[in-house]
Design a binder for these strands. Structure first.
Lengths: 260, 260
DNA sequence: ATCATATGTTCAATATATTGGACATTAACG
DNA sequence: CGTTAATGTCCAATATATTGAACATATGAT
């Protein structure tokens, strides 16, 4: 069902693709699984999964954990991810920016990016309010559901956007459908204004603010605030200013390469 | 030369292994490279590297960056690494522990783990002293060169240790050779005492402290202090106490699985 | 202009990776 | 006990991934 991309007929799958399908699946499940379970749940031949899991184990990409032969993402992935992070030097300044934002606004602040054709919260700083945020770190969310989504695809043409976002992602959690044309209009507006705010369309009580973190001419990420509706509307201008300042401070950094 | 494992004859290489060789190579180089350069430097057929790079690009494991078709580790790796990290919930408490350590001692504090058969600094908090640390985050260092190394292999038998550590890693940066038997003795001592300290054997001016962070009965990681020799000797007992307290606070956490 | 080097693309041959299915083992269960 | 389900291993067949080599293009030096 949720296979990565083109997976129609009964051809053999390429090992590399299957391998990363396994990794993504484990990430999504967020728990150690037996090879057999993996095979059953992603609909892959068991022998293939056993073969690949063993290869990945040998490479440190997967690790035995949880006993009973269960495997989960391995340390090597952590190191590779850290190298990615390091290269752009995001995190440190990012955390600082979120900290500052949370302090200034007392609202929940998030740093968001695309993960494939989904939206994902990469870092989050919970606000001081007694307020529950629904989105979990690292969870994939359809792009059209989010304020940030408008910004993260703003560098594409209309056609590219519609080709990029899976059609079913325009269906909101309640079941209603969001008109793609309306979405595109909002994308253009967001791209032009340099921010996007709206009453969340995935719940009935939050107001969302998003501003882009620019890198190489397009929104590489966004900074967001998720607030109670009344607070958000009452402090709209101030919050937007805070966000833009924070984003500006981040937008400089990512370009420069780091040498040890 | 430094191929991953068994790479003798002129057989064809498996795509998956080659792929991770590419990823590791990029991590080591810490910069974006052209596919052609990668092929030349890891000694792989160009057509294979181009094929694999394209596959990895399609999966978000690699990304174009730096222009001219150069590629580097991709965002997907970051997400996978974050999931690994999350699963063990290390980082947050880890950063806190380093912060505390650095505050208490004003020395450089490190969180270290094994990466394959090498030692690696995963997190570091620079001390308040005007003092330069040589080790860089994420760089691979021979196990015998480090105090932590004694602890990180302490759960293995002598034979396992000698099979695990590449023989040439017993050669110190100066060129002298460390006697494996002497190393094993230190490993046993470290395992027994629950810490290891020594005047660094890779430079002439630092004293190193290491204590284990236990997980599932063995040292999954270490906390370290790197200090000027005189300071280290003068504050030895206090520093060791700080380290042990910090390690104890971390040793609890990693076992419990997290549910959203 | 000529040559050399670096870079990327294309393609056919074959070495081999993926796969289905058989088999082995264990646990659960009536 | 016999049956079913879950899990892991093994193996041969074949679909295909890896590879060398040829080709294409750009750049820079002489």
């Amino acid at each position: 069902m949720d296979a990565i991309a083109d997976d129609a007929g009964g051809k053999r799958a390429r090992g590399l693709d299957r391998a990363f399908e396994i990794l993504d699946f484990l990430r999504q499940k967020r728990q150690a699984l037996k090879p057999n379970e993996i095979a059953a749940q992603i609909g892959a031949p068991r022998s293939s999964v056993y073969e690949l899991v063993n290869l990945l184990l040998r490479n440190g990409i997967l690790e035995f954990t949880g006993g009973d032969g269960r495997v989960y993402l391995g340390r090597k992935l952590y190191f590779l991810g850290a190298a990615y992070e390091n290269h752009f030097d995001f995190t440190r300044e990012c955390e600082a920016a979120l900290e500052r934002l949370a302090g200034e606004t007392r609202e929940t602040a998030q740093f968001c990016m695309l993960d494939g054709n989904k939206y994902t919260v990469v870092h989050m700083r919970e606000g001081a309010r007694p307020f529950r945020i629904s989105t979990d770190i690292g969870q994939s969310v359809p792009i059209p559901w989010t304020a940030s989504g408008r910004l993260l695809v703003a560098h594409m043409t209309d056609e590219e956007i519609l080709a990029f976002i899976p059609p079913q992602d325009f269906q909101l959690p309640g079941g209603e459908w969001l008109d793609p044309q309306a979405f595109l209009t909002e994308v253009r507006q967001a791209g032009h204004e340099g921010f996007f705010t709206f009453n969340s369309i995935v719940d009935s009580f939050t107001h969302c603010f998003a501003v882009p973190v620019m890198d190489e001419g397009h929104a590489a990420a966004t900074l967001c605030l998720v607030t109670p509706r009344d607070d958000g509307l009452a402090n709209r201008d101030r919050y937007l200013t805070c966000l833009k300042d924070a984003a500006a401070s981040l937008s400089q950094a990512p370009t420069r390469p780091r040498r040890g």
